[in-house]
Design a protein around this nucleic acid. Sequence first.
DNA 1: TTTCGTGCAAAGCATTTGCAAGTAG
DNA 2: CTACTTGCAAATGCTTTGCACGAAA
Lengths: 140, 140
Amino acid sequence: MINIKIILEDAGIKPTIERLSILKYSNSKNNHPTAAMIFNEIVKKIPTISKTTVYNSLKLFMAKGIVTPLYITGSEVRYDFVTKPHHHFFCEKCGKIYDLEVECPIFRKKHFQGHLIKQQHGYFRGICKDCLGKEEKKQS
Amino acid sequence: MINIKIILEDAGIKPTIERLSILKYSNSKNNHPTAAMIFNEIVKKIPTISKTTVYNSLKLFMAKGIVTPLYITGSEVRYDFVTKPHHHFFCEKCGKIYDLEVECPIFRKKHFQGHLIKQQHGYFRGICKDCLGKEEKKQS
DNA sequence: TTTCGTGCAAAGCATTTGCAAGTAG
DNA sequence: CTACTTGCAAATGCTTTGCACGAAA
């Protein structure tokens, strides 16, 4: 069980109710939400929250390395709670992003062809097993 | 030597001067340009060209599979002329994108954990060898 | 009091859309 | 004539910025 409050305190971030909610939501549902998804969910419980605060908080979390941005869809940033290194699969049908654990030597290298590698990330795109299942049902 | 005109004709696209220029530029410099970079370059030779035409043409090329979008920087789409499968390294200092040839079994799979994989892309970020070289010079 | 956090409104950018005028066959 | 292409201008959508109010130490 992860303690959200301690994560913020360890990073030197004051744990306000807004920040706790934002970090909790980006972690709990494991759905790699957009800023809009986070806002729409939290505004139900904290009606006074603004999008500015969501963006401010996410920016702060990124600076501290607590969340990472995923540029997988092209039109909007998805936020990923940082745990252990992993990769992502984006379903073009339902828009869901799955975590993938992939073993490959290149993903452990610090240098490649003279370049210093600070981040590496496997992006996969296609149709997820759930959506494939629905297609089969339709046809039968 | 690639014949740009034939590529367009084979794809069923009428090779107008604008489209030829756009495709030529996204291929020749091998710099994975943004729409703005393409526009700024071409407007020097064809002063009447509009950004709309650049976007229209790129959309058409993507629909035909002639170019692919790269969502590597987060703030803008970079366009990649499609040749053989490869991966990308983005330099945070100079913004340049390098092609990488990486061998890894996962990048050849069509299915993974039940998902249908249509595209896969290894995405690396850090500091390129040129910028590393410049840093060393400064310090000495 | 001084600093920090919040949030409204406006601005900024990349991209898309509506539509009118031009071109090719 | 008909279908396609171009390009201006306006709109859209995500994100950032300016600024003022309010809370905390």
